[in-house]
Simulated assay, not measured.
Amino acid sequence: MSSASPTGVDRLRESVGVDAQTLQATVAAPVRFVGFWAAVLLPFAYTPLLFTDLQGSTMTAFLALLAVHVCSLVLGQQYRT
Rank of each mutant, 00 (worst) to 15 (best):
A39P: 01
A4Q: 12
R80N: 10
Y79Q: 03
Y46D: 00
A61F: 00
S5L: 15
L41M: 11
A4V: 05
Y46T: 02
Q77M: 14
C71M: 14
F62M: 01
H69Q: 07
A20Y: 12
V34Q: 07
L12W: 12
G35V: 10
M59F: 13
L66R: 09
T60L: 09
L73F: 09
A4N: 03
W37R: 05
T26S: 13
L42D: 04
V68M: 13
F51D: 01
V31S: 05
A20R: 15
T26V: 12
Q55T: 06
P30I: 13
S15C: 08
P43Y: 12
A39Y: 12
T26C: 09
S15V: 06
R80W: 08
T7H: 07
S72E: 04
M1A: 14
A64N: 02
V34R: 09
S72K: 01
L54D: 08
L63P: 06
V74W: 13
V74S: 04
S2E: 12
C71A: 15
A39S: 15
A45Y: 06
T47M: 06
F51G: 01
L54I: 01
Y46W: 15
T26E: 05
T81E: 14
F44G: 04
H69S: 04
D10W: 06
F33Q: 08
G56D: 02
F33R: 05
V9Q: 07
L12M: 12
L49T: 02
V16Y: 11
L73D: 06
V70Q: 02
D19S: 12
V18F: 14
V40S: 09
C71L: 15
G17N: 10
V9C: 07
V34S: 13
S3W: 03
G8E: 07
A61P: 00
L42G: 03
T52Y: 05
S3H: 09
Y46I: 01
T7V: 07
G76V: 08
S15H: 02
L23D: 07
R11D: 03
L50V: 04
L65G: 07
A39I: 09
T52N: 04
G17C: 03
G8F: 04
L23P: 01
